[in-house]
Design a binder for these strands. Structure first.
Lengths: 237, 237
DNA sequence: ATTGGACTTTGACCCAAATCAAAGGCGCGG
DNA sequence: CCGCGCCTTTGATTTGGGTCAAAGTCCAAT
């Protein structure tokens, strides 16, 4: 199984980098991989001067936060298992990446990784494709922020989180919503992702529960009672 | 002058692709370049099945629009002279690119361009960097959509358009706001870029004029009377 | 120069979501 | 098992920006 090529403990799912690069590139990556665990809430890269590392998420969720000095902040990206964290050729980005749940990472030192990238176009291309996919995600999110109502925003985020947190669908099958999943974000974080306040998020959760679309157990468990209704409320075309 | 390498009529400014790739790559690109003019308002790529072309903007502005069937729409990107339009390895994107002003493009057929890209890593890397830069722009924009007030949104967009529409600053100098520039967007387009309505945009223009920050001449000419005040109102940190 | 139509401005009113305020409940450490 | 914080819910009120409506302008084609 090729996923093992990276690193013994990296049971990263099929979609990860391993299946996108040439065998030689993968073989060179193995020895420079190392694991790391990060507790929830910890910042994972301030990344001064291009130092630090790049990583593939093995388990857990990372939020990318853009903040202003006046205290306002907006979550501008969520990275799930198999996603890449950090960018080579770092554009001194003004982002903070933070674990929203306990995290398992498969890390590569930045310089070693960039060296392999230079000699293996397939690796560079794989990252390029990921950047394009991130861009597409960001633009979809821009539509949500600019044009959707609070209700649609919450429904959309629930769908997107449920899809990404669930195990990947069998090859060739469309992704389906799980009937139950764990929220990787608190109410405040959901609000910061959607450009809302936590009170509004809470009220929309209440509405979804009253409408029989979802039910909750504890603070983080969500049951999706009516996937069809949820999709309708999300109004994603 | 290296800019000429691309194509005789491509007086694309210094920042463009030409200065970012190897000489050999640039030499291969020249023969496949061709020019095209596009009137304002015209859609420039629906790009079915990866056909069509990729282009560098020589003059004019392109808006990237994401629309839903219910009529809501959001501008999710603006491309200015020297920017790239379209993505290789096209991720069948759900975007429509449209000229907001008359446009001059330097076009490359998609397949020819991708072939050159495969044999010239410097070209691929240049596009990768552009994608990362687009991503950074998109995330900045997400903050604006999610967390800024109408006034801050309008001020921010004015600054960004004024900066990009102006001639590039002398090497080593910081970009400075021109005292006068032409808006590349109508009021409706500004509203669609900022997640507002055209009425709100109009009212914020009025406020900026009353406050002596800008003045207008005709529908599209803007005079920046107080760049400092404009920056303050934009609240970009 | 005239004129028609689209773009823009302005005004009046309304509503979705923010803000302010106060309980309530989950879960962790003792 | 208990109690204390913090996260979350709920309620009351406010408000920024949206909606609806009407007048005013720019400008391109006649």
């Amino acid at each position: 199984m090729r996923a093992r090529l990276y690193c013994e403990r990296c049971a990263v799912r099929q979609t990860s980098l391993c299946s996108e690069v040439s065998d030689e590139a993968a073989r060179e990556l193995v020895p420079i991989a190392h694991h790391r665990r990060i507790p929830a809430g910890q910042v994972i890269q301030s990344d001064h001067q291009g130092l630090g590392w790049l990583a593939i998420i093995v388990s857990g969720v990372v939020k990318l936060v853009k903040a202003q000095k006046d205290g306002r902040l907006q979550i501008v990206g969520l990275q799930y298992p198999a996603d890449f964290v950090g960018h080579p050729y770092l554009s001194k980005n003004s982002l903070v990446a933070e674990a929203t749940t306990p995290l398992e990472l498969c890390c590569f030192s930045r310089t070693a990784f960039e060296n392999i990238m230079r000699s293996h176009p397939s690796l560079e291309q794989a990252l390029y494709r990921r950047a394009l996919s991130d861009l597409e995600t960001a633009r979809e999110w821009m539509f949500l922020l600019g044009r959707k109502t609070a209700r649609e925003k919450v429904a959309s985020l629930l769908i997107s989180m449920a899809t990404r947190v669930a195990p990947p669908p069998a090859c060739g099958k469309a992704a389906e919503l799980p009937s139950r999943f764990e929220l990787p974000l608190s109410r405040i974080e959901i609000a910061d992702a959607l450009g809302l306040t936590l009170e509004t998020v809470s009220r929309e959760f209440r509405h979804l529960k009253d409408a029989g679309v979802i039910s909750t157990a504890g603070r983080r468990s969500i049951n999706i009672l009516s996937p069809a209704m949820l999709h309708t409320l999300a109004a994603s075309d």
